[in-house]
Amino acid sequence: EDYYQILGVPRNASQKEIKKAYYQLAKKYHPDTNKDDPKAKEKFSQLAEAYEVLSDEVKRKQYDA
């Protein structure tokens, strides 16, 4: 799945936009606030993985290549 789609940001998003999108979605899908939703944990880990790659310039360049 596309990391940009997961975070809901365009491919040319700035680091600030990526961070903002991640924090909004992380708050929304955090397992502690969605105890009754088994998919929230999965969504949250996808968000974390996408953010880890896109927030790191080197990893992001490799991902975009």
Rank of each mutant, 00 (worst) to 15 (best):
E1C: 10
E1F: 12
E1V: 13
E1P: 15
D2H: 06
D2C: 07
D2G: 07
D2V: 03
D2Y: 06
D2E: 06
D2R: 03
D2M: 04
Y3W: 05
Y3S: 01
Y3P: 04
Y4E: 00
Y4A: 01
Y4W: 02
Y4N: 00
Q5P: 01
Q5S: 14
Q5N: 11
I6M: 10
I6N: 03
I6D: 02
I6C: 06
I6P: 00
L7P: 00
L7V: 03
L7G: 00
L7D: 00
L7T: 00
L7N: 01
L7M: 11
G8K: 09
G8P: 00
G8V: 03
G8S: 06
G8E: 10
G8A: 07
G8L: 04
V9E: 00
V9P: 00
V9D: 00
V9G: 00
V9L: 09
V9C: 06
V9S: 01
P10F: 06
P10Y: 07
P10T: 12
P10H: 15
P10I: 08
P10L: 11
P10A: 13
P10W: 05
R11W: 06
R11C: 06
R11D: 04
R11Y: 07
R11T: 06
N12Y: 10
N12W: 12
N12E: 12
N12C: 10
N12I: 07
N12P: 03
N12S: 11
N12D: 11
A13E: 01
A13M: 02
A13L: 01
A13W: 01
A13F: 02
A13G: 04
A13K: 00
A13I: 03
S14K: 08
S14T: 11
S14V: 05
S14F: 04
S14N: 10
S14I: 04
S14Q: 07
Q15M: 10
Q15Y: 11
Q15L: 15
Q15H: 09
Q15W: 05
Q15E: 14
Q15R: 09
Q15K: 11
Q15C: 07
K16H: 13
K16F: 12
K16G: 12
K16L: 14
E17A: 11
E17W: 10
E17D: 15
E17I: 09
E17C: 09
I18T: 01
I18E: 00
I18R: 00
I18A: 00
I18Q: 00
I18G: 00
I18K: 00
K19L: 14
K19W: 13
K19H: 14
K19A: 14
K20W: 14
K20G: 07
K20P: 01
K20Y: 13
K20S: 15
A21Q: 08
A21G: 03
A21E: 03
A21F: 03
A21S: 08
Y22Q: 01
Y22L: 02
Y22K: 01
Y22R: 01
Y22N: 01
Y22F: 12
Y23D: 13
Y23F: 14
Y23L: 14
Y23G: 12
Y23W: 09
Y23Q: 14
Y23P: 02
Q24E: 14
Q24L: 15
Q24N: 10
Q24P: 04
Q24W: 15
Q24F: 13
L25T: 04
L25N: 06
L25H: 05
L25G: 06
L25Q: 09
L25F: 05
A26V: 13
A26L: 11
A26M: 13
A26S: 12
A26F: 15
A26E: 07
A26D: 03
A26H: 15
A26Y: 15
A26Q: 12
A26G: 06
A26P: 01
A26I: 10
K27P: 06
K27W: 09
K27C: 11
K27M: 14
K27S: 12
K28F: 10
K28Y: 09
K28I: 11
K28L: 13
K28V: 10
K28M: 10
K28P: 05
Y29P: 02
Y29F: 12
Y29A: 04
Y29R: 03
Y29L: 13
Y29V: 05
Y29D: 03
H30C: 07
H30Y: 08
H30D: 15
H30E: 08
P31Y: 10
P31D: 14
P31C: 08
P31V: 07
P31N: 13
D32G: 10
D32E: 14
D32T: 10
D32K: 05
D32A: 09
D32C: 08
D32V: 10
D32W: 03
T33F: 15
T33K: 11
T33E: 14
N34L: 14
N34V: 11
N34M: 14
N34H: 11
N34S: 09
N34P: 06
N34E: 07
N34Y: 05
K35T: 12
K35W: 10
K35C: 08
K35I: 10
K35P: 15
K35G: 10
K35E: 08
K35Q: 15
K35V: 12
D36V: 04
D36Y: 15
D36C: 07
D36F: 06
D37L: 03
D37A: 03
D37G: 03
D37E: 05
D37V: 03
D37I: 04
P38W: 06
P38K: 07
P38G: 06
P38Y: 08
P38I: 09
P38C: 06
P38S: 05
K39V: 14
K39D: 10
K39E: 15
K39H: 15
K39G: 11
A40F: 08
A40W: 11
A40V: 14
A40H: 06
A40L: 13
A40N: 09
A40E: 06
A40Q: 07
A40G: 05
K41I: 12
K41C: 09
K41F: 15
K41P: 10
K41Q: 15
E42Y: 07
E42V: 08
E42L: 09
E42N: 06
E42G: 04
E42K: 07
K43P: 03
K43T: 08
K43C: 07
K43R: 09
K43G: 04
K43N: 06
K43Q: 06
F44M: 11
F44Q: 04
F44L: 07
F44Y: 14
F44P: 01
F44I: 05
F44E: 04
F44R: 06
S45W: 15
S45M: 15
S45I: 15
S45Y: 15
S45A: 15
S45G: 13
Q46R: 13
Q46I: 09
Q46N: 09
Q46L: 12
Q46W: 08
Q46K: 15
L47E: 02
L47W: 03
L47P: 00
L47S: 03
L47T: 05
L47G: 03
L47I: 13
A48K: 12
A48Y: 12
A48T: 13
A48H: 12
A48N: 14
E49L: 14
E49W: 07
E49K: 15
E49F: 06
E49M: 14
E49R: 12
E49V: 13
A50Q: 00
A50I: 08
A50P: 01
A50K: 01
A50R: 00
A50E: 00
Y51M: 05
Y51D: 01
Y51G: 03
Y51L: 04
Y51V: 03
Y51I: 04
Y51Q: 02
Y51R: 02
Y51W: 09
E52L: 10
E52C: 09
E52I: 07
E52Q: 08
E52D: 13
E52V: 06
E52S: 15
V53M: 05
V53H: 05
V53K: 02
V53L: 05
V53P: 00
V53R: 02
V53T: 15
V53S: 03
L54H: 00
L54M: 03
L54W: 01
L54F: 01
S55P: 00
S55Q: 07
S55A: 09
S55F: 06
S55N: 06
S55D: 05
D56R: 01
D56N: 06
D56G: 01
D56F: 01
D56C: 04
D56A: 02
D56Q: 02
D56V: 02
E57Q: 07
E57Y: 07
E57N: 06
E57T: 14
E57D: 12
E57M: 07
V58E: 15
V58Q: 13
V58H: 12
V58R: 13
V58P: 04
K59H: 04
K59I: 04
K59G: 04
K59L: 12
R60H: 02
R60D: 02
R60G: 01
R60C: 02
K61I: 07
K61E: 13
K61R: 10
K61G: 11
K61A: 14
K61Q: 13
K61T: 08
K61L: 10
Q62L: 14
Q62S: 12
Q62K: 10
Q62T: 08
Q62H: 14
Q62M: 09
Y63D: 02
Y63C: 02
Y63I: 02
Y63L: 02
Y63E: 03
Y63F: 05
Y63G: 02
D64T: 03
D64W: 02
D64H: 03
D64R: 01
D64G: 03
D64E: 04
D64M: 03
A65I: 15
A65Q: 11
A65F: 07
A65D: 11
A65G: 09
A65E: 15
A65K: 15
A65N: 08
A65T: 11
A65C: 09
